[in-house]
Design a binder for these strands. Sequence first.
DNA 1: GCCAACGTTGGC
DNA 2: GCCAACGTTGGC
Length: 176
Amino acid sequence: MAARPATKPLVSALPPRKAGEVRYWLLKQEPEAFSFDDLLRAPKRTTCWDGVRNYQARNYMRDHMAVGDQAFYYHSNAEPPGIAGICEIVRAAYPDHTAFDPADDHFDERSDPDAPTWYMVDVRALEAVDPVFPLETLRTLPGLDGMLLLQRGSRLSVQPVTAAHWKRIRAAIAKR
DNA sequence: GCCAACGTTGGC
DNA sequence: GCCAACGTTGGC
């Protein structure tokens, strides 16, 4: 058994939230499906984050997100890929009803309405990051060691971001 | 469009 | 429980 590479210190279990603590996240979305501009144009600048079908991503949403947490809105499969906006969680996890709808792309026949498998949260746009702050630039910033997004093969669509990384990135965006 | 990396599935 | 096959993600 080879040693687990040092580049893989996944934050799978987060410590308990302290009273009043704000947590930070990164939410991936393909702009072709729903861009940050789409969110700005949505009623109340709010949408439900439906369609997550990965257990780890679900666990972060269901077990660790709270109203008031903030998140980077990240455009994946985009040109360029990068941070397109800042948003906040405005509703904590509740069942993802799209899993119950056979007509929906994200239908999952195994998700039982009486014991839902999949959950979503509601997010509201706070401000655009315009132009997009590119992944390529994130890779050049010091102080982002261990950031999940920057690790090879990282595909998780809901990722925790440490407060230190959040501050570092916000500062880099502001100073640009 | 390519393809490496990943998560899930299912045979055994 | 192992692990090969498969489908998906997402940068490039």
